[in-house]
Computed example of a mutant assay.
Amino acid sequence: MSTERRRVALVTGAAKGIGHGIALRLATDGFDIGIVDLASQRNEAENLADRVRTLGQGATVISADVSDQRQVFEAVEETAGQLHGLDAMVNNAGIAQVKPLSEVTPEEFDQILSVNVASVLFGIQAAARKFRELGVRGRIVNACSIAGQSGFPMLGAYSATKFAVKGLTQAAAQELAADGITVNSYCPGIVGTSMWDTIDELMSRYNGLERGATMRKYAEGIALGRVETPEDVAGLVSFLVGRDAGYLTGQSVLIDGGMIYR
């Protein structure tokens, strides 16, 4: 009988949206899942854990604010302790902001930097320490965006955070390569989630279009002719944490159906 340890992945912002899709896909791939999200998302996170368990995988739910370094390190420790290891860290949590740059307040800028950038830094730090402790050649995957490849008007602060994630990904990949740890990012486009519903609604306040019109406008530029799903993104993450991606590091990979070409 095989005594091989089961693989473990931690996904932040996993209760809904892209993170939810990633967690379910990795569970299907055979990972036990550490589900990390805000306390306000506890019910959704527990429902996800139940679904992971029906797939025959272990799951643990941890309420944490990923903009707090201590809480991120504790979430990694708790996941590794309860699920007996850690092999992949998916720094997925993030927020959007729709506003012209001239109107962004210091408080708003601090918030989006904390959630979208600092959380990724803390996730890299915590995962790298745990991987080294366990002697694991782990995988770190970060949430970037097409807005980390090209700046978008009305999404200037958000774009800035995603460019920062791309930079962190490149630097971390080089610093951690000697330990066999890979670091990559995924760059989605227009994904049919509650975040994009919010972006669409806020855009309508500035451009005067009816709700739904902004998403339709952006979607017209997708070569493959449809809005992206969380499952589309999850398929790329599955590859990035899988055995076939062992020689890929420092990359921010576009998965947008054909919107931005680099």
Score class of each variant (00 low, 15 high):
residue 200 D to H: 04
residue 22 I to Q: 05
residue 33 I to S: 04
residue 216 R to H: 11
residue 61 V to D: 06
residue 119 S to A: 12
residue 149 Q to Y: 10
residue 62 I to C: 09
residue 262 R to K: 14
residue 75 A to S: 15
residue 74 E to A: 13
residue 152 F to R: 09
residue 239 F to W: 03
residue 215 M to F: 08
residue 257 G to M: 04
residue 14 A to L: 10
residue 173 A to G: 06
residue 117 V to M: 13
residue 217 K to I: 11
residue 33 I to V: 13
residue 11 V to T: 07
residue 59 A to R: 08
residue 221 G to S: 15
residue 252 S to R: 10
residue 237 V to S: 01
residue 23 A to L: 11
residue 12 T to P: 07
residue 232 D to E: 07
residue 245 A to Y: 02
residue 187 C to Y: 00
residue 211 R to Q: 12
residue 3 T to M: 15
residue 162 K to V: 04
residue 5 R to A: 14
residue 57 Q to A: 10
residue 106 P to E: 12
residue 86 L to E: 03
residue 172 A to D: 03
residue 109 F to N: 09
residue 42 R to P: 06
residue 155 L to N: 00
residue 158 Y to K: 08
residue 216 R to C: 05
residue 63 S to A: 15
residue 209 L to E: 13
residue 132 R to K: 15
residue 140 I to R: 02
residue 66 V to L: 06
residue 205 R to A: 14
residue 75 A to K: 06
residue 217 K to H: 11
residue 145 S to Y: 08
residue 213 A to M: 09
residue 33 I to E: 00
residue 218 Y to G: 05
residue 39 A to E: 10
residue 173 A to P: 02
residue 198 T to L: 13
residue 243 R to K: 13
residue 1 M to V: 14
residue 57 Q to E: 08
residue 117 V to N: 02
residue 53 R to S: 02
residue 156 G to C: 08
residue 84 H to Q: 14
residue 118 A to Y: 13
residue 93 A to H: 02
residue 216 R to A: 14
residue 207 N to S: 10
residue 163 F to A: 07
residue 63 S to Y: 07
residue 100 P to Y: 05
residue 198 T to N: 10
residue 133 E to G: 06
residue 154 M to P: 08
residue 36 V to D: 09
residue 177 A to D: 02
residue 217 K to G: 12
residue 15 A to H: 06
residue 30 G to T: 05
residue 109 F to Y: 15
residue 1 M to I: 13
residue 162 K to Q: 00
residue 61 V to I: 11
residue 40 S to A: 14
residue 143 A to C: 10
residue 222 I to P: 00
residue 4 E to Y: 10
residue 187 C to I: 06
residue 198 T to K: 13
residue 201 E to D: 12
residue 42 R to H: 14
residue 122 F to Q: 03
residue 67 S to Y: 03
residue 64 A to Q: 03
residue 122 F to C: 06
residue 78 E to L: 14
residue 56 G to T: 09
residue 128 A to Y: 01
residue 258 G to A: 09
residue 191 V to C: 03
residue 223 A to P: 01
residue 233 V to E: 04
residue 251 Q to W: 07
residue 178 A to K: 15
residue 162 K to E: 00
residue 2 S to M: 11
residue 157 A to R: 03
residue 95 I to Q: 08
residue 215 M to Y: 05
residue 184 N to D: 09
residue 32 D to P: 07
residue 155 L to Q: 09
residue 147 A to C: 13
residue 74 E to M: 11
residue 103 E to V: 13
residue 223 A to S: 14
residue 169 T to D: 07
residue 6 R to W: 09
residue 227 V to C: 03
residue 208 G to W: 03
residue 55 L to G: 08
residue 146 I to Q: 01
residue 153 P to V: 14
residue 140 I to N: 01
residue 240 L to Y: 02
residue 161 T to H: 02
residue 110 D to N: 12
residue 145 S to F: 06
residue 167 G to I: 04
residue 162 K to P: 00
residue 169 T to K: 03
residue 152 F to Y: 15
residue 118 A to C: 11
residue 235 G to P: 00
residue 145 S to I: 08
residue 97 Q to E: 07
residue 249 T to W: 05
residue 140 I to M: 04
residue 36 V to Y: 10
